[in-house]
Design a protein around this nucleic acid. Structure first.
Lengths: 144, 144
DNA sequence: CTGCCTGCAAACGATTTGCACCAGC
DNA sequence: GCTGGTGCAAATCGTTTGCAGGCAG
């Protein structure tokens, strides 16, 4: 992730805060930079570890706020802790160690939304979970 | 879900237990029938409520075992409690109330797996999360 | 200065673990 | 009878809440 992209996102973040009448506090900015700067989908606790001077409670509250104003998304993940990311990709999910790898593939972005009118559902976006076994776990299994 | 399909699945379940050297206990059978008989993805506690004579601990342990031998899958869900299902579908996830609707659509089952060799990942299956707002939440929002 | 934001501690719900008892083979 | 399976209670983990003080606007 190059630094120009990052600073663009920070500017956009500041805009959103202004629009939504959210104070641009040190903590909010720090949490935002933490989820931007991390590969994968950090848990609240991982975010906190990279910003240890912010209270755990505050990290949870800020992440909740971000989800509310669409600055971050709460990711679906088979593990117990919720995970957050500023952007949604497609995912490789290892069923063994629960690692997540994000990836993008243009060919996956043109899927027609199914006709779900009978469910009364309005679809905004989608992402695909490809599930399987990662390289490390395959190696481990063979070794056993 | 017709009852013939159900009994086929129970037979298959018994086979898997034999292969994996898992005793076919009353509790395991009951938990399996509970996740088969339920629409949606029950949480461990919902399974237990339908089988109140089984201890909560045991339900958790059995569901964990089932995931290990691929009899059930731990579903990805934005809520706090894990959800289990014997079969994976595609999902409509409401970002507002976190309801999940399963659906199937043949056109979504022929997606080419992306080339993820550089991640060393072996893909077994996939499912798609379509995210948006459900009918009930849309109505509520308008009312506000 | 005023109200939103934060930090702490305690509560809470979901899940796991240690241990003694019980049941299937 | 031995091994694995179960139930209970307590511990643990992730997350939320109540409340008193602090900072942004």
């Amino acid at each position: 992730m190059d630094s120009q992209f990052k600073s663009e996102r920070v500017v956009h973040f500041a805009q959103v805060c202004r629009e939504q009448k959210l104070s641009l506090t040190v903590q909010r900015r720090a949490v935002f930079e933490a989820i931007l700067g991390r590969d994968g989908h950090p848990t609240a606790d991982q975010v906190r570890r990279s910003q240890p001077n912010i209270s755990r409670t505050t990290v949870y509250r800020i992440l909740g706020t971000f989800v509310g104003v669409d600055v971050a998304a709460r990711m679906c993940h088979p593990g117990s802790a919720a995970r957050f990311d500023p952007k949604t990709y497609h995912h490789l999910v290892c069923l063994h160690c629960e690692k997540i790898v994000d990836f993008e593939d243009e060919r996956l972005n043109g899927i027609d939304s199914p006709d779900v009118r009978r469910h009364g559902f309005r679809i905004d976006d989608y992402h695909i979970h490809f599930r399987g076994i990662c390289a490390a776990c395959r190696t481990k299994r063979r070794a056993q």
